[in-house]
Nucleic acid binder design. Structure first.
Lengths: 111, 111
DNA sequence: ACTACCCATCAACATACGTTGATTGATACG
DNA sequence: CGTATCAATCAACGTATGTTGATGGGTAGT
């Protein structure tokens, strides 16, 4: 369990992790995720709710998708977005690993 | 337990959350956190390890500190930084809340 | 076919962010 | 004292990011 988490962070490319956190570091995108938490939604629903330009939402949805936090599914002329809970759990593990105390000791340092 | 998490995210200002994730969305800062995970460190230690300019680290440490992820403690002419594990646990809860399925149902929408 | 709708993409712009090198202040040490 | 060290801050710069309005491609309905 513990070992799993170690490798989770260690083996993961830092760039991918950075993109994950970056995707989460925007108010609009957080609100989108909160919304998607309730279930699948199409873009038109979101533009309705957020009362904002469509291209703006499209932009943010793309950031979330590139980070792997959401998935999309076309149906007719709509595209439905939904949360990727696996990615979120990965974020949880990442942070959990940081929170834990390491086993070994650190080498000293002369200032 | 579940209710706690709900209020954790709901009562929290989104701006603060955004700053948290933003602080985590940089490779240098992630490496600093990984380092601090092993224990308290002064800036000179970090400049040594990362072989980079002092002002650069100072900048990133400030971002981390403003987000509440680290704390600093002056001692003599050095300043020691350490992880704020409470803040990290807060991040964990935030993400956990997003991951969970909500209880109620969403209102429908006509496209 | 024609029109209406949904969405992604683009170009242009403004703002935010990270880097670098220099300066400043504070502490320690001779 | 004078000098050296540690670290925060500043100004200047280039790049990344988010916003807006316009365009275009695909699907549905008439």
């Amino acid at each position: 369990m513990y070992k799993d988490r170690v490798t989770t962070l260690a083996s993961r490319s830092r760039g991918k992790t950075v993109r994950l956190f970056h995707a989460l570091s925007d108010e609009t995108r957080l609100r989108i995720l909160e919304r998607l938490r309730e279930g699948e939604q199409c873009v038109c629903e979101l533009t309705d709710v957020f009362k904002t330009g469509q291209s703006r939402l499209s932009f943010h949805l793309r950031v979330l998708k590139d980070a792997g936090l959401v998935t999309d599914r076309p149906e007719g002329r709509w595209i439905y977005y939904s949360l990727n809970r696996d990615a979120l759990r990965e974020v949880e593990d990442l942070v959990a690993w940081l929170t834990e105390s390491p086993s070994g000791n650190m080498p000293g340092h002369r200032c």
